[in-house]
Structures are given as C-alpha cells and as structure tokens.
C-alpha cells in the first residue's frame, strides 16, 4: 500500500535526508496530508491555498500534474511521484 515519493534536496530537511519516502492516499492532496503526518512541515512547502505552489513541480509517473488534475490528481499503489523545485528566475 505505497506510493514512492522522490524528495528534492531542498525538502530533505523534512525527511531526515531521505531521497525517497513512501506514502498513501487516493489523490495527491491526500498523499501530501499523509506525508505531513510523518514529515511535519512538508505540506506547506508544496501546497498553498489549496493548490500546488508555483515554485514546485510535481510529476506522477513522469507526467507534470499541472497537465493532469493538479493536486486532485488520482494516485494509487505502485505510482511514483517526483517533486522538483522549478528552476526559474530572471531580471523582471
């Protein structure tokens, strides 16, 4: 009963340095709530006001969830979720 979640360097302070953790849930939202129960603080780094933070990219099995159902994207056993901070910036 597990979903594999890949954690980027900047969020490993919440996972005791682990590069990957396991979680469960029927949607990404539920998965992040489940992660929060074992890794307090991580959810707020991913979610803001009920949607994904702009600075964070989340992929479900290599697909950017922004092109799926965002935080409501259904997930299940055997799925792989990858979290990566956006690499962006600029003079503006």
């Amino acid at each position: 009963m597990a979903i594999d979640v890949r954690i980027p360097t900047i969020l490993r302070t919440y996972t005791d340095g682990a590069k990957a953790v396991e979680g469960s849930g029927g949607t990404l939202d539920e998965l992040f709530t489940d992660l929060e129960s074992r890794h307090p603080g991580i959810r707020a780094r991913l979610v803001d006001g009920g949607s994904l933070r702009r600075f964070v990219n989340v992929y479900l099995n290599d697909e950017d969830v922004r092109f799926l159902d965002g935080i409501g994207t259904p997930v299940g056993d055997g799925d792989s979720v990858t979290i990566l901070p956006a690499v962006a910036g600029g003079s503006a």
Binding site: P8, N57, Y59, D62, D64, R66, T82, L84, A86, V87, A88, G89, G90, S91, A92
Partner: peptide
C-alpha cells in the same frame, strides 16, 4: 521555456529529464 528577455524557466519535462 519562457523565451523572454526578463524571465527564464526550464521546461518542466526537460527539468525532470535533467534531474
């Protein structure tokens, strides 16, 4: 991916491939 004189952003698929 922004193709802009004031902003840059790695394309999200490229970013995943890179990492």
């Amino acid at each position: 991916a922004a193709r802009s004189p004031t902003f840059y952003e790695f394309d999200s698929a490229d970013l995943l491939r890179l990492y």
